[in-house]
Design a protein around this nucleic acid. Structure first.
Length: 596
RNA sequence: GGUCCUGUAGCUCAACUGGAUAGAGCAACUGCCUUCUAAGCAGUAGGUUUCAGGUUCGAGUCCUGACAGGAUCACCA
């Protein structure tokens, strides 16, 4: 039984004995006491005045007296209006700490026997990754870690959009302007090479439109008739007809792109257990359309096209198969959903995709539920907001994107600059220093993108570089490095903090019990982050924890203390904080250094 | 136009899902390094939570209606 549960139980008995009324323990909500009042937990009595039939102050006082007498953890209480603030006794804090400290499986819930797939990243192979992809990748990876820590078996998947008109555009431009350029000959990363030709396509396309308009065509006609566009469309047809030359070029360019992506993913620190390729899946789903027709979930129109009617769910009619029998986007998504289930028998499926596709996923999930899919109830669209620049939306064709590789490198460079300015690399080898810059630069970037609630859109100003102070990754990393230093010293002077005995400690400071309180909150936050698919909950928690530790650090001289048990306690408290930071940052995909 | 999301300090974000005097960070200003890392700590200042109603003991949070920004409403992906 946790302290909270003991208090709830006590409250239940109090209501029974004082007011002769039975209340469910889970309804008795305990909130953390606000900083400006004395106490740890606060019970709000307003909702219970009908039961107590007396004033809020009176009700709170009666309950408080009962708790103080009957619950061993409650040392005292105070009443402010209808708020009953409970003060815990010193030994409860130490007992609680000992319990957490000795829990070797802390931060990893036991298996819940459920399997979840997290699909994220899902790049197009015609251009390199940009800032928006960074948010997607960091979110996806982090949510996967969080679900795993919550006891799920997690499969990280990546559905690569490797076919379609946009790929053909890069290919056509490459044939026209490439002169056989390769990543080796140009020194360009493969994905950047493909992106270069995607931009060239658009440039040429616009030129041709201008020329056609000059020769008398309307703008609308020119947009349809530009030769380079027709070429791209022709190339798509050839690709679908499995034309040898086209397929060979397609394979060649994609190979280059994948080599580039691999490098970017490695730098990001993300990974995948399973890749799906749209070139394999784009024809899937037609059998489901047939099934849907038979089940009466879909219906056919005169032109043979197949539709689903979702008007009773507040949506519209939606096409699921064209009149000529060819697929649309949602057809293959239905097929891919089935494929994922066939491959892994997943209980849940999380799609990390931007909020511009909210409607699409709403439709997709409703269809799959109507079809009675066993995984239907476990579908979840982790919809995140766009990353905007001060200049507006990023457009890759117009070159107004913040490139992922460039940004990561800038962050590492900035980390190097800050570190050198602070003169903090004494005794580091060149490799160690470089490793530190990577850890700090990527940490700052990931934390910056993950600390915001996923569903909110966020602004990124490249001019104002990402901070290294305050509510940032490096602040949390710094706190960890500080503690690592404490632990080194403790080892050096022989403090036994592995199995310490705290029985001789009289009382602990406010900053110490506050820290224990927060450390105890870790698993609650972990659970909440899993339920909400929200790394930002972890990020906020870690900031609070690091902040509280630094308060304690400034407050207490660890090794100057004369009572050896108290020294051991403080070192142990430090160690548990470091472990929690490391584990928590790991959930965000962020490493922590031992020195910085 | 229909639907959905968002609106909180100058800026970037919180607010434990309806609880106390709405909190952090950045930027500004004041203090604190001869003892464990100052990428830190403590403090000052900064608010009509876009606006108007409503629900109740109690609203940033729920409801209605405005206003502003964004997304989407393709036989594109």
């Amino acid at each position: 039984m946790t302290i909270q549960e003991n208090i709830q139980k006590g409250l239940q008995l109090a209501f029974q004995n004082i007011f002769n009324h039975s209340v469910e323990t889970q309804d008795l909500a305990l909130a953390p006491t606000r900083k400006e009042f004395e106490g740890t937990y606060t019970f709000v009595v307003f909702p219970y005045l009908k039961i107590s039939r007396t004033t809020p102050e009176n009700t709170a006082t009666l309950l408080g007296e009962y708790l103080q007498e009957n619950v061993k953890e409650v040392a005292g209480f105070n009443v402010v209006k209808g708020f009953l603030n409970l003060v815990l006794n010193q030994s409860s804090w130490l007992d609680l700490f000992t319990k957490i400290y000795q829990n070797s499986s802390r931060g990893q819930m036991p298996s819940n026997g459920k399997r979840v797939m997290v699909e994220y990243s899902s790049p197009n192979t015609n251009k390199p990754l940009h800032l928006g992809h960074l948010r997607n990748n960091f979110l996806g990876y982090s949510v996967a870690q969080i679900l795993e820590a919550n006891g799920y078996e997690v499969i990280k998947s990546n559905l690569v959009n490797d076919r379609g008109i946009h790929i053909c555009k890069s290919m056509v431009a490459y044939l026209r302007f490439g002169n056989g350029e390769t990543p080796e000959s140009s020194g360009l990363k493969g994905d950047h090479l493909a992106g270069k030709y995607y931009v060239l396509f658009d440039k040429e396309y616009k030129n041709e439109i201008k020329e056609l308009i000059a020769s008398g065509q309307t703008e609308e006609a020119a947009k349809k008739n530009a030769p380079i566009l027709l070429e791209a469309q022709e190339m798509l047809r050839k690709w679908e007809a499995n034309d040898q030359e086209t397929v060979a070029l397609w394979k060649q360019m994609n190979t280059w792109v994948y080599a580039g992506f691999d490098e970017t993913y490695r730098k990001m620190g993300v990974e995948f257990d399973k890749f799906y390729y749209e070139s394999d899946t784009y024809l899937l789903g037609k059998d489901i359309v047939e099934e849907g027709l038979q089940k009466g979930v879909f219906f056919k129109k005169e032109d043979n096209s197949v539709w689903v009617d979702l008007t009773d769910e507040g949506l519209d009619e939606k096409l699921v198969l064209r009149g000529d029998g060819t697929s649309v986007y949602i057809t293959q998504d239905m097929g891919t959903a089935d494929l994922k289930y066939e491959d892994f028998q997943i209980d849940k499926s999380v799609y990390v995709v931007g909020n511009e596709q909210d409607y699409h996923f709403d439709v997709l999930f409703k269809i799959l539920k109507k079809l009675g899919r066993p995984y239907g109830e476990g579908l979840y669209h982790l919809s995140y907001g766009m990353v905007d620049l001060p200049t507006g939306k990023m457009k890759s064709r117009e070159g107004t994107v913040v490139d992922a590789d460039d940004l990561m490198q800038e962050m590492v460079d900035t980390a190097e600059k800050h570190t050198k300015e602070l003169g903090k690399i004494e005794g580091f080898s060149a490799e160690q220093a470089e490793e530190l810059y990577q850890i700090l630069g990527l940490g700052a970037l990931k934390y910056f993108l993950l600390k915001v609630d996923p569903k909110k859109r966020m602004l990124f100003n490249p001019q104002e570089s990402i901070e290294f102070q305050g509510f940032t990754g490096p602040f949390v990393q710094y706190s960890h490095a500080r503690i690592a230093s404490i632990l080194r010293k403790a080892d050096q002077i022989g403090v036994d903090y592995q199995n310490p005995d705290f029985t001789g400690i009289g009382s602990i400071a406010q900053s110490e019990s506050d820290l224990i309180y927060l450390l105890n909150e870790f698993e609650n936050k972990l659970r909440l982050a899993g339920e909400e698919y929200s790394p930002s909950i972890i990020a906020h928690y870690l900031f609070e924890l690091a902040k509280e530790y630094n308060r304690f650090y400034a407050d207490q001289q660890i090794f100057a203390e004369e009572n050896p048990e108290l020294v051991a306690f403080r070192v142990a408290l430090s160690k548990l904080t470091a472990q929690t930071i490391k584990k928590g940052m790991g959930l965000l995909g962020i490493q922590v250094p031992d020195r910085m």
